[in-house]
Design a protein around this nucleic acid. Sequence first.
DNA 1: ATGGGTGCAAATAATTTGCAGGTAA
DNA 2: TTACCTGCAAATTATTTGCACCCAT
Lengths: 136, 136
Amino acid sequence: MGWPVDGRHHRTRQRRAVLELLAETDEFISARQVHARLRERGSSIGLTTVYRTVQALADAGEVDTVRVDGGEQRFRRCREERHHHHLICRHCARTVEVTGPGVEAWARQIAQVHGYSEVNHTLELFGTCTECRQSG
Amino acid sequence: MGWPVDGRHHRTRQRRAVLELLAETDEFISARQVHARLRERGSSIGLTTVYRTVQALADAGEVDTVRVDGGEQRFRRCREERHHHHLICRHCARTVEVTGPGVEAWARQIAQVHGYSEVNHTLELFGTCTECRQSG
DNA sequence: ATGGGTGCAAATAATTTGCAGGTAA
DNA sequence: TTACCTGCAAATTATTTGCACCCAT
């Protein structure tokens, strides 16, 4: 919950590194990418630790996640506090956070009509960004 | 494309079996589940063939797919011709097809504002259905 | 001290691919 | 015939876990 600062968790070099990398990265990246980028810049860290760290951050709601085609999970630190969605470039993964005005209310209503409770939803937009369209 | 009836593809016992099972199944099921259910009812079929068949159907747009938490992919034959979304029970996978009136237009507009082209979106609702709430 | 953290190697899990036959058209 | 199809075994890919050791508190 209170991760990454909460009494029972240690502030280690590895976790700081992952957090820093995510803080300066604007696209959704996979655990393996986090691992690779950290190694490139000389930071010694194990892939296992990266997996554990990003997963913990996701569980704590500190980062958003999406599943891409191959079933791979990708992570991104959220800027918005409030609930929001993402517009993601399918080529470079450049991401914009957007909010869906009617969506939340619509979802609640639809769920109620069909007798479903405790609803939540996933909504992601995929497209080709300006730069990728030009270079593609 | 024109799958499952299109000149260059054979109508085999295995494909018919997968198609039939999907036709009578109302929840999203995984390739492994398709395989298991077919075997239960005595139909001999290889897991590989199931994977290839459901994937082909998905590519052809004959079935919808969602990714569940573990990254596993699940398939379901769509009833609706038009574009639609799903309200899925997170316990039993019972599914209802729903349409999001404003969502499509909203998505197009958001994408345009940010300069993204060729947009599509994924939108799924997850909740607990009436029956599962009572028995749970 | 000591309980959480780390990372290697091995285990899982989902899905794909190589290849030697089968079979629909 | 002749593509296309099937299925086993082996390979891939993403992610998790066992475990001995390390370190932040």
